[in-house]
Amino acid sequence: MTRLLDVRGLETTFSSDFGEKTVLNEVSFQIDKGEILGIVGESGSGKSVTALSIMGLLAANGRVSRGEVYFKGENLLALDEKALDRVRGHRLTMVFQDALSSLDPVFTIGNQILESIRAHLRLPRQEARQRALRLLDQVGLGDPERIMAAYPHTLSGGMRQRAMIAIALACDPDLLIADEPTTALDVTIQAQIMALLGRLRRDTGMGLILITHDIGLIAEMADRVLVMYAGQIVEQSDVFTLFDQPAHPYTRALMLAVPTLRDSRERRLRPIAGVVPENYESMTGCRFRDRCRYAVAACAEPQPLVPFALNVGERLPDPGHLVRCHRAAAGELPTTCSVLLESAPESAS
């Protein structure tokens, strides 16, 4: 069966006055119809560049320097701009982090959403309009008639973001790439939008790439997960395995760094020391090693993404569980139980 999206060995390079830098390495993953793939990581880890590379929307100084992107069997990277446009905005759409820059300021929201519907779905005028109104209502924009007539700059940030989501959904895409779609929105609105996206994948079989820095949203929505750090996938698995058995030290650190509603309030958060390295492109070994509490000398060697093939307790390994850390793969790190223990109240400190 052809996958909905099959990304193989993606590598993206930007050029500048200082030369070239490769900000994305060896990014490979697949999505099937009706599947939700979550991509999680801190800012600067390469999530947006991954999305833009797939869409063919990189900034002028960027190019995909290696790899293939098959969308329903067709290599998008081999298409010319015109052929790509037939796919983009119709079968494959994207919601950007920053709505203002991706909405056209001189057209009303109604113009933009109707254009998308009419160009791709060929619905009669009245039906297209009904569809537009319904979508605006579904993304939580009360009074859709008024929103249709509004220009982007007259809307608040949250309303614009939702209008953009409605536009992206207008022509029933097979795959939606949503790059931090709700980061700027209130939790109540976020929940409405996530419920809508979940419904669409169930009812229409839409695939979804959900990019976020919120591990809670991943738990709530994703079927499979990529954890990215400094331009690489450091862990990849189905969502249950990831939460039961996080293997990579970065994944674990990420989980311990966020407070949850269910926490005992006596738990002290464990921040990850330091920051994401700035010029990680030139690092040869594990890119997390300056911040990793398990780092040893061998971590300076290149780290491939390898299967996590160990039984943990009763649990058999999941063949799709990949990790980019030799120590995790060799079973040298504490098991999940002790990860949970680590999050218990600390006596010292």
């Binding site: 009074d143 209130d186 939790v187 109540t188 929940a191 809670g216 991943i218 994703a222 269910r262």
Partner: peptide
């Protein structure tokens, strides 16, 4: 509280009751 994501995939709620609209509407 219902709208806040729970960071545990085993605790997904099939259908939580959500607020409609937002404060500005």
């Amino acid at each position: 509280i219902a709208a806040a994501p729970i960071p545990d995939p085993r605790l997904r709620r099939p259908d939580v009751e959500l607020l409609e609209g937002d404060i500005s509407s």
